[in-house]
Amino acid sequence: MARVWMFGENVDTDQILPGRYAPYMTSEADLVKYPFIEARPEFAREVRRGDIIVAGKNFGCGSSREYAPRALYAVGIAAIIAPSFARIFYRNGITLGLPLFEADLTGVLRDGQEVELDLDAPAIRAEGRTYPLPPPPAWLREVWAEGGLIAYYLKHRRLPLEEGAR
């Protein structure tokens, strides 16, 4: 089971990981201590591997700091579901292999609720109901399967779509 961590709209990267707590200012090993350190101090303490974040629109807006999604990935967040994501955050999600789904579940799920996340046929199951998530394109599924774009590249020595796109 996954616990739902509910957030509002426009969650910016300064909230996810303030610049002052960047690995540059502290250390890489401490990264897992700081997600939402000021906005929601209990998050880093209580989050468990497999939990999910459900948020309002424009999640991850602000700076390009990849350590923001990386910190969420490092503490074990299994997916983030929001009606929209800021573009660099979305792109970093693909690079890291962190599943991001564009869907609005803020009105139907509750903070702290225990739910089940299905990544194969993307959906959330909670209290006997199923909420489908938009299925990712085939190339993105491959990227997830390899554990992110870098891992994909290391294995295939090319980017997904490369034959088609080049």
Binding site: S64, P69, N92, L149
Partner: peptide, 18 residues
């Protein structure tokens, strides 16, 4: 356009990106 660190590393390694 802005990209993250891994994206940048990949771009530097290959010269291209998506």
């Amino acid at each position: 356009t802005g990209v993250g660190s891994r994206d940048m590393a990949l771009t530097l390694a290959t010269g291209y990106n998506w």
